[in-house]
């Protein structure tokens, strides 16, 4: 991870693994589990990004629960221009908004098919993409 002149990590393009509220999310992904916070009071899924209090009822009691990893595409786009050098040879690539069955939405990639074949309403399931430092949840068409 590169540092700026004040010694702060610059993470353009990378997840912020040390974000206190989100640490368990990134740790579970390392074990190939997609998790979210379930409110102990109203039982609803908090959604993303993780936060200290329930966005539905403001309770601060919750459990991290494993999700089914199934979801539906709310919308999808294809980047034809790379805003970051790491994507220079990846264009055009898909980015999708996936609504998870239990609640919560992720910005993610639907992979395993060309971007123009991705459709709104398509059922998808999670896959895990490991890098040296972190694991990203991505999605493929549900089997």
């Amino acid at each position: 991870m590169s540092k700026d002149e004040r010694g702060r990590a610059t993470r353009r393009g990378q997840p912020f693994l040390e974000e206190p509220e989100a640490k368990p999310f990134w740790a579970s992904l390392r074990e190939h589990k997609l998790t979210a916070q379930r409110c102990a009071s109203c039982q609803k899924i908090f959604g993303f990004p993780p936060q200290s209090h329930c966005p539905h009822c403001l309770s601060n009691e919750f459990k991290w629960v494993e999700l089914s990893g199934k979801g539906t595409i709310y919308s999808h786009i294809a980047y034809h221009r790379a805003w970051h050098p790491a994507y220079q040879d990846k264009v055009p690539y898909n980015v999708s908004l996936v609504d998870l069955d239990e609640g919560g939405r992720l910005v993610t990639n639907v992979v395993g098919l060309p971007p123009e074949q991705v459709k709104i309403g398509m059922k998808v399931e999670v896959i895990f993409e490991d890098t040296a430092d972190f694991t990203l949840p991505k999605f493929q068409p549900a089997k």
């Binding site: 353009r12 990378q14 786009i77 970051h84 994507y87 910005v107 709104i120 990203l136």
Partner: peptide, 27 residues
């Protein structure tokens, strides 16, 4: 402030956010 929930999946630009709206409006 919340780019780290978008950029790891290659979503960098205001054009992307508005393209999501355009795709949905088209649908």
């Amino acid at each position: 402030g919340d780019e780290h929930w978008e950029e790891p999946w290659g979503h960098f630009a205001a054009a992307g956010g508005h393209a999501f709206a355009a795709a949905r409006h088209m649908y």
